[in-house]
Amino acid sequence: MDIVLAIIFGFLFGFVLQRVGAADPDKIIGMLTLRDLHLMRAIFMGIGLASVLLFVSLQIGLVDVGHVSVKKMYTGVMVGGLLLGFGWAISGFCPGTGVVAAGAGRKDAIAFLLGGLVGAGFYMCSFKYLKDGWLMESLFGGKATLVTTGNSVALLDAPWSVALAIIIGLVMIVVAAKLPEKFCD
């Protein structure tokens, strides 16, 4: 059953990323050079909507709290984010969109995926030297969220904090609607 779901959801996500324009380096680099904010608006809309739906569903018990899966916060998250940011801007791809672009027939995406396998390999080999170091030191109590989810360390741990999550989601949707499509062109 899991495998059937993986095929359905993976296919859907890949299909959507392609039709959104996220697998197109011109669109990604257009966003990162602040000229073409189409993807920025789609991202804000997507996160905002998903967040509102998630927190409303958690409140009414539609989503199993066990499905909430928050990633740990440690120094390496930010150092890794910087590294990813450099590569993202240089190539115009991120891991998911690189896979989708290769599926869509882009040959440059194959070079990106090969580079990705090398980068992941570097990390696999270097992990034994990093695992007990400062990069891995937990921050904010590890699996931390801004609001109460039931399956994380909440910085604002109170019943009303869920309302804040929904407000943040709604603000993201408004930002998506207000941002101009073309900027600094």
Partner: peptide, 30 residues
Amino acid sequence: GGVLVLWGARLAGGCTSGHMMSGMMQTSIS
């Protein structure tokens, strides 16, 4: 770009999908 993106994503424990989209959806600090 691919080398840097995946090296960074593994050090960070996630990428644009896992950290940015899924993470911010859950209001996660990471």
